[in-house]
Amino acid sequence: MHKAWIENGVVRDIAVDPDSLFHPDVAALFTADVPESVVVGSTLVDGQWIPPVPVADEPPIVLAQAVTKVSPVEFKLLFTGPERVGIKKLRVDDALLDDFMSIVDDGRLGFVDMSLKSTRDGVGYALQALASDEVIPADTVERRAAEILTGVFQ
């Protein structure tokens, strides 16, 4: 037998020995003896433990078809206006950022290949620089990198 924490008629948690696992205040909530077959989410109906009905997974979020190559102008348009202005300002004192953007600015460049590691690294570096300069929130860097590298125009 296991001990279960029942809340609103539903098994919230199960433990073999809650006293050895939890603070005494929490361990005291494990009041019901249940068979080993009972799982979290089960309900007691007419003396029978009924397992929870599996919830169908949400359909996965499908991002737009990833664009693998864009023109240099299209590449710049993947950044927001404030991001572009921030990059322009920061590249004056940041040799790595300036190097990356100089390649994008080179008139001989026919396209930016989004699948190249150097492109991914450059985008990540630019976004980190923008976050460090508080142009964008630090917690948006990963999301913005994914948007830019999949061709989500701003």
Score class of each variant (00 low, 15 high):
85 V>K: 13
67 V>S: 05
108 R>Y: 04
48 Q>E: 15
72 P>W: 05
42 S>I: 00
103 I>T: 00
111 F>R: 05
95 A>W: 01
121 D>W: 03
69 K>L: 15
114 M>I: 12
117 K>C: 05
65 Q>E: 15
138 A>D: 13
105 D>H: 02
124 G>T: 00
96 L>C: 06
43 T>C: 04
82 P>F: 09
73 V>T: 15
140 T>S: 15
62 V>R: 14
141 V>K: 11
70 V>C: 05
130 L>H: 04
122 G>M: 03
91 R>F: 01
109 L>T: 14
110 G>A: 11
129 A>F: 01
127 L>Q: 07
42 S>F: 03
92 V>Y: 03
93 D>R: 14
141 V>I: 12
142 E>Y: 03
113 D>Y: 09
100 F>E: 07
81 G>Y: 04
125 Y>R: 10
74 E>V: 00
46 D>P: 07
44 L>W: 01
108 R>G: 06
134 E>S: 10
74 E>F: 00
108 R>K: 10
130 L>P: 06
123 V>M: 13
95 A>R: 04
94 D>R: 08
49 W>R: 08
52 P>T: 06
112 V>W: 07
111 F>E: 11
57 D>N: 11
64 A>M: 14
125 Y>C: 06
129 A>C: 09
127 L>H: 06
80 T>G: 05
135 V>K: 04
64 A>T: 14
62 V>H: 13
109 L>G: 09
139 D>P: 11
60 P>M: 05
92 V>H: 02
62 V>N: 14
50 I>Y: 06
118 S>N: 07
57 D>M: 06
98 D>R: 14
82 P>A: 13
81 G>C: 01
77 L>C: 00
115 S>A: 14
125 Y>E: 08
67 V>G: 01
128 Q>F: 01
108 R>W: 03
122 G>F: 05
83 E>H: 07
124 G>S: 01
45 V>L: 07
82 P>N: 15
137 P>K: 13
53 V>F: 09
75 F>Y: 02
67 V>R: 08
47 G>E: 05
66 A>T: 14
61 I>P: 02
74 E>R: 02
135 V>G: 05
128 Q>A: 07
141 V>L: 12
122 G>N: 08
69 K>Y: 15
77 L>V: 00
67 V>M: 07
52 P>I: 07
81 G>L: 10
143 R>Q: 06
84 R>F: 03
42 S>H: 04
70 V>D: 03
49 W>K: 08
121 D>I: 01
109 L>C: 10
126 A>N: 08
83 E>I: 09
104 V>I: 14
104 V>D: 02
107 G>V: 04
97 L>E: 03
143 R>A: 11
119 T>S: 15
114 M>Y: 12
69 K>E: 15
84 R>D: 04
106 D>H: 09
104 V>L: 02
51 P>I: 09
131 A>F: 11
116 L>R: 13
55 V>S: 13
70 V>Q: 02
63 L>K: 12
